[in-house]
Design a protein around this nucleic acid. Structure first.
Lengths: 247, 247
DNA sequence: GCTTCGGCTTGATCCATGTCAACCGCGAGT
DNA sequence: ACTCGCGGTTGACATGGATCAAGCCGAAGC
């Protein structure tokens, strides 16, 4: 696919590398549905790419908000901390997903975003995104859909936390991961977890021991093979079945 | 405050009644921060006001989405249903709050919105809202804040469901309601619950018996006075205290 | 005024998950 | 190669909240 860049000195290799127009995640990410011309306008906006090392924060709760972030590669978690030390992992994000939407409301981030492996992100200055989405209808609409999808996703987690028992929660979690890996061209049946049992537990509202026991149980039943963080799903329907047999 | 309407026949009483510009909730609702001129442009967009009787649906999961709704008066709940019959109340909404944001992502509503008392809503056609917010920067920005606030709110619920015990959840719930009533000019210490114990339980991930017992406990402790749906908060700090004494 | 019914309260018991504790095993650092 | 430590597994036991069950109260209908 021949890209046409203006032939001037502004265009360095690094700018090209940062462009949405040649990013293979563009159909999963913010540029979804944009024309080539529109894509190039979005490229102008996303000037900063940043590497975040495993364990480092992309942002912290309380920091001023001025950009949202698209994950170019890697894996993140977001969490919220209460004064008394309790914390709750509110999500796990992978390549092509957006981080920081929570910060728009108060102009401060309301959670922490932490890399679970060495990662790269594209920073999208929010006020410029708003300007551009006033001009590009498709961008505006897609951005709204992305925010809305986040709300729907959160409702799913509320359902999980509010009505499911431990094994159902873990099954739902694995199936969700599997589906998201598939959408990114990875195996739906075999993957490495980037997070600890404790982080999974926090996300699912369970203690790490309970998560561990549920993994063992699934293995006994032949639904999965677990070896530390390496997961193979052997019987998807088995897992799905766990979730539906309840009045 | 003298409002200036163009003196032509288009302006009927009902149109005036529907206008944001004379709605006393405007500072809590979508029009927040708009100039008078901008407000009038928003008025044009909100043509439909609808009454919803207690128990009726404003929309149902699966229905096509084309508008979001501002609550002019009344009280709603939203819930999600699983095939196996489990359902989860995902929120309670009161005057000035928006309903239907979840529908943007798939262009279908993903939950049910049900009136818990006779209510009135303003329908805001979504594509027209997008058009207008391409022209009115303030509107665009505020709308983004509202969506983001919804995400933050959901994270709060996830925290509640994921890390709090029964009494903490109910205390958090009461304090949240109290605060929202206050913002609307009602008493912060005395109000009627519009929802049943079962609906509270569903929202909080508890059974109705547990909710009932927690109410009784709070009453014994002298934190509140309960009589069915009538709640008086006698000791706010008592309730707050319940939530912080945990490692 | 009486009945009925839905919503609420309260008690007794059960069970899923939390808690506490021991141990394992792998990867990092010496 | 050794050991140190973190993350994970597993077991024994404790407990918060679910479940089951009975009865109460107040509003709506006869």
């Amino acid at each position: 696919m021949g890209q046409t860049y203006p032939l001037n000195q502004e265009i360095s290799l690094s700018v090209i590398k940062t462009a949405c127009s040649n990013c293979n995640l563009r159909e999963l990410c913010l540029p979804f549905g944009l024309s080539l011309e529109e894509l190039e306008r979005l490229d102008d906006l996303i000037s900063t790419r940043r590497r975040i090392k495993r364990g480092d924060h992309l942002y912290r709760a309380g920091e001023p908000f001025d950009a949202i972030y698209a994950i170019r590669s890697g894996f993140f978690k977001t969490d919220v901390l209460l004064e008394d030390g309790r914390d709750q992992v509110t999500g796990f994000q992978m390549a092509g997903e957006l981080l920081g939407l929570d910060g728009i409301s108060t102009e401060h981030h309301t959670c922490n975003a932490i890399a679970l492996e060495d990662s790269e992100i594209c920073a999208i200055p929010f006020s410029r995104l708003e300007s551009l989405s006033r001009e590009i209808h498709n961008l505006q609409h897609h951005f709204h859909k992305v925010m809305s999808r986040e709300i729907v996703r959160d409702h799913g987690v509320m359902m999980l936390l509010g009505t499911m028992r431990a094994e159902e929660r873990l099954a739902a979690f694995l199936l969700n991961l599997s589906q998201r890996f598939t959408a990114r061209g990875f195996s739906h049946a075999e993957f490495y977890l980037r997070m600890t049992r404790e982080e999974i537990g926090s996300y699912l509202g369970l203690k790490l021991e309970t998560v561990s026991r549920a993994f063992s149980k699934f293995q006994e039943e032949g639904y999965i093979a677990v070896q530390q963080k390496h997961i193979r799903i052997l019987n998807v329907n088995g897992l799905k079945g766990l979730m539906n047999h309840r009045a």
